[in-house]
């Protein structure tokens, strides 16, 4: 099997078979990464699609520095954050969205029935709400660390920041999550 850099070389020349191989090799990790931001399958698929469209279009400008996945994760993070931002604007513009948000409450609120055993979906909502309150930089560091298992150095590459910035973002994020999820951590 040709490696990622080899496939990128072929993609530069417009080789669509190389694109097919790259999509099939990385689609699951890109889908998952997007899903952790956007929270639903449809939006995650849309983001993933755009990541590969973007990869194809930027192939001619791509210079092999480090892993291809770092480059793809960077695109995926940016597109996911754009997707969330657009969705917020859309929700703000539609009255329906406004009322929906008002009645939704805040599931991450520690005072809400902490001792109930939550269904998986409910716990997922709680965790999502807690993650959503984090600033984008902290959230990205958490997602890349927790779910993609990246090292601080790799996260710094994706986020184009220093390793110490990653360290401090994760430190603050963990303390914030601990506070928000305190009530649910007892059952573990």
């Amino acid at each position: 099997m040709p490696d990622d850099q080899e496939l990128m070389k072929r993609l530069k020349k417009g080789d669509e078979e190389a694109l097919r191989l790259l999509v099939n090799r990385h689609r699951q990790s890109i889908l998952n990464l997007a899903y952790r931001y956007v929270g639903n399958q449809d939006d995650a698929e849309e983001v993933a699609q755009d990541v590969f469209v973007n990869l194809y279009r930027s192939a001619s400008r791509y210079t092999p520095q480090g892993k291809l996945t770092t480059y793809m994760y960077r695109i995926a993070v940016n597109l996911s954050l754009n997707k969330i931002r657009d969705r917020k604007v859309g929700r703000y513009l539609s009255l329906h969205g406004l009322s929906e948000r008002n009645t939704a409450g805040n599931p991450a609120d520690e005072t809400q029935r902490p001792d109930t055993i939550l269904e998986n979906k409910e716990l997922e909502a709680v965790v999502r709400a807690a993650l959503d309150t984090l600033p984008a930089g902290q959230r990205t560091a958490v997602i890349l660390k927790r779910f993609n298992g990246l090292s601080y150095e790799e996260i710094a590459e994706v986020m184009e920041c220093s390793v110490s910035a990653v360290e401090s973002r994760l430190h603050r994020a963990k303390l914030a999550l601990q506070k928000k999820l305190k009530a649910y951590a007892k059952n573990e």
Partner: peptide, 10 residues
């Protein structure tokens, strides 16, 4: 607990 976030379908 972050595990609860689940993942996308392929």
């Amino acid at each position: 607990i972050l595990d609860a976030l689940g993942e996308a379908q392929d």
